[in-house]
Amino acid sequence: MKRILIADDHEIVRSGLRAIVETRSNWIVSGEATDGEQAVALALETRPDIMIVDYSMPIMNGLEVSRRLKALRVRTEVLILTMHESEELLTEAVLAGIRGFLFKSDARKHLISAVEALLDGRPYFTNVLLEKLLHDYRANKQNRADMLLTSREQSVVQLIAEGHTNRSIGAILKLSVKTVETHRASAMRKLRMSSTAELVRYAVRKKLVSP
């Protein structure tokens, strides 16, 4: 029996994913998480074969969840679900050791195939996304002025926008306060911002948090 953990902060999405997973008699949903911190805790408790994780979750996004599990040596494959077509997000996902990436809009048709691929030790990235990323890369290669935030900087910005202090961010991400401050300053420098309010607006615009 293969164990599948579902992590999404929307109950209706979790219910839909559970319904798809449970169409397979040899798969079982081992737990449901509503934020990144709970997802990591449940993964440590239930040791699922696959985690289906929404990218945009409270406390820790899907990439940070994968990074944490990798650091803890949890041998669980992560399938990231996202609503956003983003070259940067896919690049950061690969760097975080994620081998599965699927649009939420494709989940009904392709979730089973994606999970099967990961269970067989094969990566799964939706073709539509890969084609778009190739097109965008060619179009933007010659004129790309914006500096990109790392996944850790995005996690810090997300938590700032959720109202966490540097100390609580450090506790959540297992970083020192000084390191959090460094990531915060780096993000603000790259984004050319000078206030927390600007970071919050950026996080809402990039859908790191809900408005």
Rank of each mutant, 00 (worst) to 15 (best):
Ala43Phe: 01
Ala19Arg: 11
Ile28Pro: 02
Ala39Ile: 01
Asp35Cys: 07
Gln38Thr: 09
Glu32Pro: 12
Asp8Gly: 00
His10Ile: 08
Asp9Gln: 13
Arg24Gln: 14
Glu22Leu: 15
Leu44Gly: 07
Ala19Asp: 12
Val29Ser: 10
Asp8Gln: 01
Glu22Arg: 11
Ser30His: 09
Val40Ser: 03
Glu32Thr: 10
Val21Asp: 12
Thr34Asp: 09
Arg14Ser: 11
Ala41Asn: 08
Leu42Thr: 02
Ser15Lys: 14
Glu22Met: 13
Ala43Ile: 03
Ser25Glu: 15
Ile12Gln: 13
Val21Trp: 05
Asp9Asn: 15
Arg18Trp: 03
Ile28Ala: 15
Gly31Val: 10
Asp9Gly: 11
Ala33Met: 15
Val40Lys: 08
Val21Pro: 00
Leu17Lys: 01
Ala41Ser: 11
Ala7Met: 04
Thr23Trp: 07
Gly16Asp: 08
Asp35Glu: 11
Leu42Cys: 03
Gly36Trp: 06
Arg24Tyr: 10
Gly16Val: 02
Glu45Phe: 03
Asp9Leu: 08
Arg14His: 06
Leu17Asp: 06
Asp8Val: 00
Glu22His: 04
Glu45Gln: 06
Leu42Gly: 00
Glu37Gln: 11
Ser15Thr: 11
Ala39Arg: 01
Ser25Trp: 05
Trp27Asn: 08
Gly16Asn: 02
Ala7Val: 10
